[in-house]
Protein backbone atom coordinates (compact mmCIF):
# COMPACT_ATOMS: atom_id res chain seq x y z
CA UNK A 1 0.00 0.00 0.00
CA UNK A 2 1.53 3.30 -1.06
CA UNK A 3 1.40 6.26 1.25
CA UNK A 4 1.48 9.60 -0.50
CA UNK A 5 0.92 13.26 0.11
CA UNK A 6 -1.37 15.57 -1.83
CA UNK A 7 -1.06 19.28 -1.17
CA UNK A 8 -4.38 20.96 -0.51
CA UNK A 9 -3.66 23.44 -3.28
CA UNK A 10 -3.41 20.50 -5.67
CA UNK A 11 -6.77 18.99 -4.75
CA UNK A 12 -8.61 20.77 -7.54
CA UNK A 13 -5.95 19.66 -10.03
CA UNK A 14 -6.51 16.09 -8.87
CA UNK A 15 -10.29 16.41 -9.33
CA UNK A 16 -9.82 18.03 -12.74
CA UNK A 17 -7.64 15.08 -13.78
CA UNK A 18 -10.26 12.61 -12.51
CA UNK A 19 -12.96 14.44 -14.44
CA UNK A 20 -11.11 13.84 -17.71
CA UNK A 21 -11.81 10.11 -17.70
CA UNK A 22 -14.62 9.64 -15.19
CA UNK A 23 -17.92 10.93 -14.02
CA UNK A 24 -17.17 12.32 -10.59
CA UNK A 25 -19.70 12.35 -7.77
CA UNK A 26 -18.93 14.41 -4.70
CA UNK A 27 -20.72 16.05 -1.78
CA UNK A 28 -22.62 19.16 -2.84
CA UNK A 29 -24.35 21.58 -0.51
CA UNK A 30 -27.82 22.78 -1.38
CA UNK A 31 -29.76 24.79 1.21
CA UNK A 32 -29.10 22.91 4.44
CA UNK A 33 -28.51 19.53 2.91
CA UNK A 34 -25.38 17.75 1.71
CA UNK A 35 -25.91 15.21 -1.04
CA UNK A 36 -23.60 13.29 -3.33
CA UNK A 37 -24.16 14.35 -6.90
CA UNK A 38 -22.28 14.67 -10.14
CA UNK A 39 -19.85 17.58 -10.37
CA UNK A 40 -18.34 19.15 -13.45
CA UNK A 41 -15.88 21.44 -11.65
CA UNK A 42 -13.94 20.98 -8.39
CA UNK A 43 -15.42 24.21 -7.00
CA UNK A 44 -18.91 22.64 -6.91
CA UNK A 45 -18.10 20.29 -4.07
CA UNK A 46 -18.14 20.99 -0.37
CA UNK A 47 -15.90 18.89 1.85
CA UNK A 48 -16.85 20.61 5.08
CA UNK A 49 -19.44 18.10 6.25
CA UNK A 50 -19.82 15.07 8.47
CA UNK A 51 -22.26 12.94 6.54
CA UNK A 52 -24.50 13.42 3.55
CA UNK A 53 -28.25 13.41 4.19
CA UNK A 54 -28.71 10.42 1.90
CA UNK A 55 -25.89 7.86 1.97
CA UNK A 56 -24.01 7.50 -1.31
CA UNK A 57 -25.38 3.95 -1.67
CA UNK A 58 -27.92 5.63 -3.94
CA UNK A 59 -25.21 6.06 -6.59
CA UNK A 60 -24.89 2.28 -6.93
CA UNK A 61 -28.35 1.20 -5.86
CA UNK A 62 -30.59 3.90 -7.30
CA UNK A 63 -33.78 4.81 -5.50
CA UNK A 64 -35.54 4.47 -8.85
CA UNK A 65 -33.91 2.34 -11.50
CA UNK A 66 -35.20 1.37 -14.92
CA UNK A 67 -34.38 -2.30 -15.44
CA UNK A 68 -35.57 -2.33 -19.05
CA UNK A 69 -38.03 -0.56 -21.31
CA UNK A 70 -40.81 -2.09 -23.36
CA UNK A 71 -43.64 -1.29 -25.72
CA UNK A 72 -46.89 -2.79 -24.46
CA UNK A 73 -49.17 -4.87 -26.65
CA UNK A 74 -48.84 -8.02 -28.73
CA UNK A 75 -45.80 -6.82 -30.64
CA UNK A 76 -43.88 -6.07 -27.48
CA UNK A 77 -40.34 -4.86 -27.94
CA UNK A 78 -37.86 -4.98 -25.12
CA UNK A 79 -35.05 -2.49 -24.89
CA UNK A 80 -32.21 -2.87 -22.46
CA UNK A 81 -30.78 0.00 -20.48
CA UNK A 82 -27.20 1.24 -20.66
CA UNK A 83 -24.94 0.47 -17.76
CA UNK A 84 -23.12 3.39 -16.23
CA UNK A 85 -19.83 4.79 -17.41
CA UNK A 86 -16.75 4.90 -15.23
CA UNK A 87 -17.53 6.69 -12.03
CA UNK A 88 -15.61 8.02 -9.05
CA UNK A 89 -17.28 8.68 -5.73
CA UNK A 90 -15.08 11.32 -4.18
CA UNK A 91 -15.25 12.14 -0.49
CA UNK A 92 -17.11 9.04 0.62
CA UNK A 93 -16.77 8.50 4.36
CA UNK A 94 -15.23 5.26 5.65
CA UNK A 95 -18.57 4.23 7.22
CA UNK A 96 -20.47 4.68 3.97
CA UNK A 97 -17.73 2.86 2.07
CA UNK A 98 -18.05 -0.04 4.48
CA UNK A 99 -21.77 -0.12 3.82
CA UNK A 100 -21.08 -0.73 0.14
CA UNK A 101 -18.89 -3.70 1.05
CA UNK A 102 -21.80 -4.94 3.17
CA UNK A 103 -24.22 -4.49 0.28
CA UNK A 104 -21.93 -6.60 -1.93
CA UNK A 105 -23.00 -9.67 0.05
CA UNK A 106 -26.66 -9.13 -0.70
CA UNK A 107 -26.21 -8.29 -4.36
CA UNK A 108 -23.65 -11.05 -4.93
CA UNK A 109 -25.64 -13.61 -2.93
CA UNK A 110 -27.70 -16.45 -4.34
CA UNK A 111 -28.59 -14.28 -7.32
CA UNK A 112 -26.13 -11.87 -8.84
CA UNK A 113 -27.56 -8.45 -9.44
CA UNK A 114 -26.05 -7.24 -12.72
CA UNK A 115 -27.16 -3.64 -12.21
CA UNK A 116 -25.50 -3.17 -8.86
CA UNK A 117 -22.46 -5.29 -9.66
CA UNK A 118 -21.56 -3.70 -12.97
CA UNK A 119 -21.91 -0.30 -11.45
CA UNK A 120 -19.81 -1.41 -8.52
CA UNK A 121 -17.07 -2.64 -10.89
CA UNK A 122 -17.06 0.65 -12.73
CA UNK A 123 -16.93 2.76 -9.60
CA UNK A 124 -13.83 3.80 -7.73
CA UNK A 125 -14.17 4.98 -4.15
CA UNK A 126 -11.96 7.86 -3.11
CA UNK A 127 -12.62 8.16 0.59
CA UNK A 128 -12.18 11.07 2.93
CA UNK A 129 -11.50 10.43 6.60
CA UNK A 130 -14.05 11.85 8.97
CA UNK A 131 -12.32 14.36 11.24
CA UNK A 132 -15.42 15.68 12.97
CA UNK A 133 -17.77 12.85 13.90
CA UNK A 134 -21.15 14.03 15.11
CA UNK A 135 -23.15 13.19 18.18
CA UNK A 136 -24.75 9.99 16.85
CA UNK A 137 -21.70 8.58 15.07
CA UNK A 138 -20.68 5.19 16.47
CA UNK A 139 -18.55 3.45 13.83
CA UNK A 140 -16.01 2.54 16.52
CA UNK A 141 -18.56 0.16 18.04
CA UNK A 142 -17.84 -2.17 15.13
CA UNK A 143 -14.06 -2.04 15.50
CA UNK A 144 -13.88 0.47 12.67
CA UNK A 145 -12.42 3.89 12.60
CA UNK A 146 -13.51 7.20 11.07
CA UNK A 147 -10.18 7.10 9.21
CA UNK A 148 -10.28 3.48 8.08
CA UNK A 149 -8.92 2.81 4.61
CA UNK A 150 -10.24 -0.74 4.50
CA UNK A 151 -13.18 -0.29 2.20
CA UNK A 152 -12.04 2.41 -0.23
CA UNK A 153 -9.65 2.36 -3.17
CA UNK A 154 -7.91 5.54 -2.07
CA UNK A 155 -8.25 7.27 1.28
CA UNK A 156 -7.51 10.94 1.83
CA UNK A 157 -7.04 12.26 5.34
CA UNK A 158 -6.92 15.98 6.00
CA UNK A 159 -3.77 16.52 8.08
CA UNK A 160 -3.65 20.31 7.96
CA UNK A 161 -2.21 21.85 4.81
CA UNK A 162 -2.14 18.55 2.95
CA UNK A 163 -3.89 15.25 2.53
CA UNK A 164 -2.34 11.98 3.61
CA UNK A 165 -3.15 9.62 0.77
CA UNK A 166 -3.38 5.85 1.12
CA UNK A 167 -3.45 4.01 -2.21
CA UNK A 168 -5.19 0.89 -1.16
CA UNK A 169 -5.23 -1.33 -4.20
CA UNK A 170 -4.68 -1.64 -7.94
CA UNK A 171 -7.91 0.20 -8.70
CA UNK A 172 -6.65 3.17 -6.74
CA UNK A 173 -3.29 3.11 -8.47
CA UNK A 174 -4.86 2.88 -11.90
CA UNK A 175 -7.11 5.79 -11.12
CA UNK A 176 -4.15 8.04 -10.40
CA UNK A 177 -2.02 6.88 -13.31
CA UNK A 178 -0.25 9.75 -14.97
CA UNK A 179 -0.79 12.04 -12.00
CA UNK A 180 2.54 11.32 -10.32
CA UNK A 181 3.41 15.01 -10.38
CA UNK A 182 0.59 15.65 -7.89
CA UNK A 183 1.57 13.01 -5.35
CA UNK A 184 4.73 12.87 -3.30
CA UNK A 185 5.83 10.05 -1.08
CA UNK A 186 4.75 10.52 2.49
CA UNK A 187 7.26 10.94 5.28
CA UNK A 188 7.24 9.25 8.65
CA UNK A 189 6.01 12.52 10.16
CA UNK A 190 2.99 12.57 7.85
CA UNK A 191 2.01 9.07 8.90
CA UNK A 192 2.31 10.15 12.50
CA UNK A 193 0.14 13.17 11.83
CA UNK A 194 -2.54 10.93 10.33
CA UNK A 195 -2.50 8.74 13.42
CA UNK A 196 -2.97 11.85 15.57
CA UNK A 197 -5.84 13.12 13.47
CA UNK A 198 -7.45 9.69 13.59
CA UNK A 199 -7.10 9.43 17.34
CA UNK A 200 -8.62 12.87 17.78
CA UNK A 201 -11.62 11.84 15.69
CA UNK A 202 -12.00 8.54 17.53
CA UNK A 203 -11.94 10.40 20.83
CA UNK A 204 -14.74 12.67 19.62
CA UNK A 205 -17.06 9.68 19.30
CA UNK A 206 -18.94 9.71 22.54
CA UNK A 207 -21.70 7.18 21.99
CA UNK A 208 -21.10 3.45 21.90
CA UNK A 209 -23.23 0.44 21.18
CA UNK A 210 -22.66 -2.86 22.93
CA UNK A 211 -22.75 -5.59 20.31
CA UNK A 212 -21.01 -8.41 22.19
CA UNK A 213 -23.02 -11.60 21.76
CA UNK A 214 -25.93 -9.71 20.22
CA UNK A 215 -26.55 -12.29 17.48
CA UNK A 216 -27.13 -15.11 19.97
CA UNK A 217 -29.00 -12.85 22.37
CA UNK A 218 -31.52 -11.85 19.72
CA UNK A 219 -32.25 -15.52 19.07
CA UNK A 220 -33.48 -15.78 22.63
CA UNK A 221 -35.65 -12.68 22.97
CA UNK A 222 -37.81 -12.67 19.84
CA UNK A 223 -41.07 -12.83 21.81
CA UNK A 224 -39.89 -10.57 24.64
CA UNK A 225 -42.21 -7.65 25.60
CA UNK A 226 -39.09 -5.46 25.32
CA UNK A 227 -39.85 -5.01 21.62
CA UNK A 228 -43.23 -3.53 22.28
CA UNK A 229 -41.66 -1.12 24.72
CA UNK A 230 -39.04 0.15 22.25
CA UNK A 231 -41.20 0.11 19.16
CA UNK A 232 -44.66 1.23 20.21
CA UNK A 233 -43.78 4.87 19.58
CA UNK A 234 -42.78 4.22 15.96
CA UNK A 235 -45.01 6.20 13.60
CA UNK A 236 -44.20 3.87 10.72
CA UNK A 237 -42.43 6.15 8.23
CA UNK A 238 -39.54 4.90 6.11
CA UNK A 239 -36.93 7.48 7.10
CA UNK A 240 -34.69 5.05 9.01
CA UNK A 241 -34.54 2.54 6.18
CA UNK A 242 -34.27 4.93 3.24
CA UNK A 243 -31.45 6.81 4.92
CA UNK A 244 -29.67 3.65 6.04
CA UNK A 245 -26.54 2.95 4.01
CA UNK A 246 -27.01 -0.82 4.31
CA UNK A 247 -30.76 -1.17 3.76
CA UNK A 248 -31.31 -2.62 0.32
CA UNK A 249 -34.88 -3.84 -0.05
CA UNK A 250 -36.67 -3.01 -3.25
CA UNK A 251 -39.96 -3.38 -5.04
CA UNK A 252 -40.32 -4.02 -8.78
CA UNK A 253 -43.16 -2.53 -10.77
CA UNK A 254 -44.17 -2.06 -14.38
CA UNK A 255 -44.95 1.54 -15.13
CA UNK A 256 -46.45 2.06 -18.54
CA UNK A 257 -48.61 4.28 -20.69
CA UNK A 258 -50.44 3.09 -23.80
CA UNK A 259 -47.35 3.34 -25.98
CA UNK A 260 -44.36 2.81 -23.76
CA UNK A 261 -43.45 1.20 -20.52
CA UNK A 262 -40.63 0.40 -18.20
CA UNK A 263 -39.93 -2.12 -15.51
CA UNK A 264 -38.63 -0.13 -12.59
CA UNK A 265 -37.03 -1.05 -9.34
CA UNK A 266 -37.62 1.30 -6.41
CA UNK A 267 -36.46 1.30 -2.83
CA UNK A 268 -38.91 -0.39 -0.52
CA UNK A 269 -39.06 -0.29 3.24
CA UNK A 270 -39.94 -2.99 5.78
CA UNK A 271 -41.57 -0.20 7.81
CA UNK A 272 -44.40 -0.15 5.28
CA UNK A 273 -47.22 -2.62 6.12
CA UNK A 274 -47.60 -3.39 2.43
CA UNK A 275 -44.04 -4.77 2.42
CA UNK A 276 -45.15 -8.09 3.92
CA UNK A 277 -48.81 -8.02 2.91
CA UNK A 278 -49.63 -11.26 1.13
CA UNK A 279 -52.12 -11.66 -1.70
CA UNK A 280 -54.43 -13.60 0.62
CA UNK A 281 -54.73 -10.52 2.82
CA UNK A 282 -52.63 -12.08 5.58
CA UNK A 283 -49.81 -9.98 6.96
CA UNK A 284 -47.14 -11.77 8.99
CA UNK A 285 -45.93 -8.46 10.40
CA UNK A 286 -49.23 -6.78 11.18
CA UNK A 287 -48.05 -4.19 13.72
CA UNK A 288 -45.38 -1.51 13.80
CA UNK A 289 -43.73 -3.37 16.66
CA UNK A 290 -43.16 -6.38 14.38
CA UNK A 291 -41.68 -4.15 11.74
CA UNK A 292 -39.28 -2.25 13.98
CA UNK A 293 -38.13 -5.55 15.42
CA UNK A 294 -37.49 -6.85 11.93
CA UNK A 295 -35.27 -3.87 11.14
CA UNK A 296 -33.09 -4.62 14.16
CA UNK A 297 -33.08 -8.38 13.57
CA UNK A 298 -32.14 -8.05 9.93
CA UNK A 299 -29.11 -5.97 10.81
CA UNK A 300 -27.99 -7.69 14.01
CA UNK A 301 -29.10 -11.28 13.59
CA UNK A 302 -30.04 -12.43 10.07
CA UNK A 303 -27.26 -10.61 8.23
CA UNK A 304 -24.44 -11.72 10.57
CA UNK A 305 -25.76 -15.29 10.35
CA UNK A 306 -25.77 -15.20 6.57
CA UNK A 307 -22.68 -13.13 5.85
CA UNK A 308 -20.74 -12.88 9.06
CA UNK A 309 -21.02 -9.12 9.34
CA UNK A 310 -23.39 -6.85 11.25
CA UNK A 311 -25.35 -4.80 8.74
CA UNK A 312 -24.86 -1.51 10.55
CA UNK A 313 -21.91 0.82 10.08
CA UNK A 314 -22.69 3.27 12.85
CA UNK A 315 -23.35 6.33 10.69
CA UNK A 316 -26.19 7.39 12.98
CA UNK A 317 -28.51 8.70 10.26
CA UNK A 318 -31.50 6.69 11.49
CA UNK A 319 -30.98 8.19 14.95
CA UNK A 320 -30.48 11.74 13.71
CA UNK A 321 -33.66 11.78 11.70
CA UNK A 322 -36.14 9.51 13.44
CA UNK A 323 -39.12 11.75 14.27
CA UNK A 324 -39.71 9.91 17.56
CA UNK A 325 -36.16 9.21 18.76
CA UNK A 326 -36.02 5.46 18.16
CA UNK A 327 -32.32 5.14 18.78
CA UNK A 328 -30.55 2.03 17.47
CA UNK A 329 -27.59 2.51 19.85
CA UNK A 330 -29.95 2.45 22.79
CA UNK A 331 -32.22 -0.32 21.43
CA UNK A 332 -29.41 -2.77 20.67
CA UNK A 333 -27.48 -2.02 23.85
CA UNK A 334 -30.63 -2.55 25.91
CA UNK A 335 -31.57 -5.69 23.96
CA UNK A 336 -28.24 -7.10 25.12
CA UNK A 337 -29.27 -6.46 28.72
CA UNK A 338 -32.77 -7.93 28.52
CA UNK A 339 -33.25 -11.03 30.64
CA UNK A 340 -33.90 -13.86 28.23
Amino acid sequence: MDKMILLKDDLSKFITELLKKNKVFAPIQSDDTILFDQITRPSEMNLDFCKSEIPPKNLLFHQTETLFKFTPGTKAKIESVDVDEKKVIFGIRPCDAKSIAILDHAFKGDYEDPYFLSRRDNTALVGLSCNKPEINCFCTSFDDSPASSKYVDILLTDIGDKYYVEMNNEKGKQLTEGMSNLFKHAKESDAKKKKEVEKKAVDMISRHQKTNGIVEKLDKIFENPFWKEVAFKCVGCGTCTYLCPTCHCFDIQDESTLTKGARVRVWDTCMNPEYTLQASGYNPRPARTNRVKNRIYHKYNYYPKNFDVIACVGCGRCIDLCPVNIDIIDVVTRAGEVKA
Partner: peptide, 10 residues
Protein backbone atom coordinates in the same frame (compact mmCIF):
# COMPACT_ATOMS: atom_id res chain seq x y z
CA UNK B 1 -38.36 14.25 -1.55
CA UNK B 2 -37.45 10.60 -0.95
CA UNK B 3 -41.08 9.54 -0.37
CA UNK B 4 -40.43 8.07 3.05
CA UNK B 5 -43.88 9.39 4.03
CA UNK B 6 -42.61 10.69 7.36
CA UNK B 7 -44.82 13.76 6.72
CA UNK B 8 -47.88 11.54 6.45
CA UNK B 9 -47.08 9.23 9.33
CA UNK B 10 -46.22 12.00 11.78
Amino acid sequence: CIRCYACRNA
